[in-house]
Amino acid sequence: MRIENIAINDIAIDTPGWDQFVFTYPLKAGKLIAAIQTVGLQQPVTLAVVENRFYIVLGVKRVLACRELSRSEIPAIIRRTDSAEAVLWLSLHEKISAAPLNVMEKSRVIVRFSELWQNDLAALREKICPLLELPPTIESIETYLFLTKLPERLHIKLAAGELTPVHVALLSSFRHDELEPVAEAFFVKCQPSMQEAREMIENFSSVCAREECRPGELLASDKLNALLNDSAITTRERTAKVREWLHTQRFPLLSKTEKAFRALVASLEKKSGISIHPPRGFEGDTCQVSMKLSNEAEVEKAAAALRQSLADKTWGKIFALLRDGGFESPE
C-alpha cells in the first residue's frame, strides 16, 4: 500500500464532522507527543478522502501530536475509493483489535453506525453490539446513543469509568437544556451509587412534577442549592444530605410517619436491644422485630422492656401508626 506525505493543513481537524471516522475518546495526543519527539513517528496514519479533503480514519492521536509539534506533513495511507461504510468498518476493526474501547468510544461507534444505517436498530443489534460486547437490546443502544448528548464533563467521567452508562441513562427523559445542570448536580457535585442515583433522580423528577417546576428552578431553590454548594462537607456527605432532603420533599407524609415511628421505638430499642422495623412503605399492618441476644440476662432485659412497652401503650401507638399512618383525615 502506497504511503504519501500529506500536509497536515490539508487534513480536516476541528471543523464540523472532522472526526466522523474516528472512535477514539478523548481526542487528545497526550503522551504521544513526547514519544514522537523522542523516537519519531513509527507508522503512517490512514486517511479517507471526502469532497477533496482528507479525513482521519486511523491515527488521530498521531495527527494531533504532529500538529502540536508543528510538523507540516505526516506520512499517510489514503483510502480514496472506499465507501463511508467501508471506512467506518476499517476504523472499528482496527480500534477493537488495538485495545478495549471505553464507554464513550463505544457510544461513538453506535452513533456513527446509527447515522449511517438511518437508525436501523436491528442492524445495530446484530452487527455492532456483539463487536462492542454490549447486550443486543434496544435499551442498550438507546443508552449509548444518549451518552453523546451529555455534557463534556460527564464524557470524561464515563470514559474514565468513574460513571457507568446506566447511571447517566437515568437522565434520558430530561430536556436537552436541562441535562447539564441536572447532571452537574447529581453526578459531579454528588457521587451516588447506582441505587442512590436512581432514587435521587426519581425523587427529584417527582418533586418537579408535584411542584410543577422546571428542574433548574428546583436546583436553584435555597436549600438544595445550599446543600449542593456546601464546600465544608465531603462529596459523600453531600450525596447523603441531598438524598435525604429529596426523600423528605418527595415523601412529606411518609417522612413524617417514619420520624414518628422512629421516635416511638427509639427508647424501647435502646432499653431492650431489639430492633423494630416497619413494613416497607408502611404498607401492611405488621412490623418486624429482631433481637440479638447472647445470654439469659439479655433475654430477661428484652422481655422486661417489652412488658414495660405494653404497659405504657407504646405498642398500641405503634400499631395505630401502622394502621393509618397516624394521620386521621378530617371527617
Binding site: 427523559s173 436541562e178 441536572v182 426519581e202 417527582s206 428542574p215
Partner: peptide
C-alpha cells in the same frame, strides 16, 4: 416522562 413532570409521579 420522568423529566417531563408526569402528574403520575407527583
Amino acid at each position: 416522562f420522568g423529566g417531563r413532570r408526569s402528574i403520575l409521579l407527583g
